[in-house]
């Protein structure tokens, strides 16, 4: 498990992407649930200050990508649930495609670098 110093800060844009993807995969979820899921999926490589999640949620809501509604959690606690809007789904698809492209380009560069101890 990565220690605190290895954990990287999460950029706002990528956090937004992760939130959207989480909602898409899990359906409506409350703030705590989203945070827990992001930590799980990232394999604890990401230090998620729960506090940074909420400003991101606010911004996503202001942009109309998610919407919020109060509901009840599985253990009967009142919680505010977020769902993906249609606009959010479209944005997610766009962003996902972009990331894939970026990832594959970087990937290619990494694969083409000469490995250590390669023969002459």
């Amino acid at each position: 498990m990565a220690t605190g110093s290895d954990r990287t800060d999460v950029l706002q844009g990528t956090l937004a992407l992760m939130v959207l993807q989480t909602l898409r995969a899990m359906g409506p979820q409350h703030g705590y649930g989203i945070a827990r899921r992001i930590e799980q999926v990232s394999g604890d490589l990401i230090a998620l200050n729960q506090g940074t999640l909420y400003p991101a949620l606010v911004r996503l809501e202001q942009d109309g990508l998610i919407k919020a509604k109060w509901g009840v959690s599985d253990n009967n606690r009142k919680a505010k649930f977020y769902t993906l809007t249609r606009r959010g789904e479209k944005q997610l698809a766009t962003e996902t495609a972009r990331w894939s492209k970026v990832a594959s380009v970087i990937d290619r560069f990494i694969k083409h670098a000469p490995a250590e101890g390669d023969g002459q």
Binding site: H30, G31, Y32, G33, Q50, Y54, R77, K78, A79, K80
Partner: peptide
Amino acid sequence: EEIQSHIDLMTD
């Protein structure tokens, strides 16, 4: 209320 709810859920 939302923050309170978050804390409660995590505590649980």
